[in-house]
Design a protein around this nucleic acid. Sequence first.
DNA 1: CGTCAATTTGAAGAGGAATTCAAAACGGGA
DNA 2: TCCCGTTTTGAATTCCTCTTCAAATTGACG
Lengths: 201, 201
Amino acid sequence: MAQRKSRSDRRLDLIEAARRAIIRHGIDGVQLSHVAEEAGLTSGAVLYHYPDLSELLMEAQHAGMERFYEQRLRQLATLTDPVQKLVVTIRSGLPTGPLDPDVRLLNELGGAAGRNRVYGVLLTSLYDRQVSMYQAILDTGAALGVFRLSADSVTIARNLVALEDAYGYRITARHPLIGPDEAAELILSYARAATGNDLLH
Amino acid sequence: MAQRKSRSDRRLDLIEAARRAIIRHGIDGVQLSHVAEEAGLTSGAVLYHYPDLSELLMEAQHAGMERFYEQRLRQLATLTDPVQKLVVTIRSGLPTGPLDPDVRLLNELGGAAGRNRVYGVLLTSLYDRQVSMYQAILDTGAALGVFRLSADSVTIARNLVALEDAYGYRITARHPLIGPDEAAELILSYARAATGNDLLH
DNA sequence: CGTCAATTTGAAGAGGAATTCAAAACGGGA
DNA sequence: TCCCGTTTTGAATTCCTCTTCAAATTGACG
């Protein structure tokens, strides 16, 4: 029998297992047995903790999003120079490669968000928070005279997040010419034009 | 009994039915009965024409992509002024609203492209063709002296398509502040900076 | 060490979806 | 009009997943 665990520990395990299962089978393709297998349990045990699979999937998506966002914030917190902040943040929004689990998970939401209101709200809130994050960087950079913004900071921030999102999709789809480095360079090209800063790093 | 049709007619019907079913249930959630219902047939009839559902789904995705792309090219062909071309093309890459079926269908591929090589290739090829389309507009505009490009035309073109893609997701996810008009304006903001042209329309 | 509640298993059964196929329905062409 | 090959149906079967639940296992705690 699988190792026995406390309620809360097991729930965390299951959320992780669900994340992996979603990545493997798609948000609409996951089934109970997939999650159970990833967790090393039987379907019955999964059901014991989450009588409703869709609820577990939501929690998994939610947890994945939060983790992704908080990781970005954490990296940001280590820096003070707006130029460095901008460059590092652009990087941290891109997958490390086609298999990057965090981005793969988020990408699963794209289609579902059009069908499922809850997923739509989740994804929208992540987008908005990322926009705010960039906006803060841009505004402080402008205040310090390092950036000379070519438009509203909201506009630029929205576009930066949009570019990250889109290149995340391209990279996970294995575009033969666009990997993490190339995507970063493409986004930086925009960031340079938008901030009037060379963004040397 | 449902109206009898020739092999090729029925196959076209089924491709349309599959498109609708995918939009409704997700690429990993569609089942035979959904397609049959959309087509007004029984599951057996669907199976008679497509013994393998996944093949039908592929054809449906492929057809949807081609239709989307050709529609854009057709709109482009009616224009000569690079400025107009650019503005109209940006518009034609965005959904008309959260329910736009063409974009909804494409969005379904985002997640699946990470798991399924065929879908990855399909999506990548669409992206590349759209990039070429923009590149042609940018290059002719530059040759005519209308545009003063701030970077490689490839770079700008890639970013423009990326922005379209991303805002397509935002709109279908029902972002409360970003609809077709706002998205167009955001992309235009970049396009203006990248072309040095006001792009008045 | 023994008890007890919580956790996990595994088997049984209920529900659905895919698949198969014989029979029916249809329409184009003779 | 009738025939014949094609298309469609619908029922039977198989396969698979979810759900339920009694029994087994476990670890915490006295």
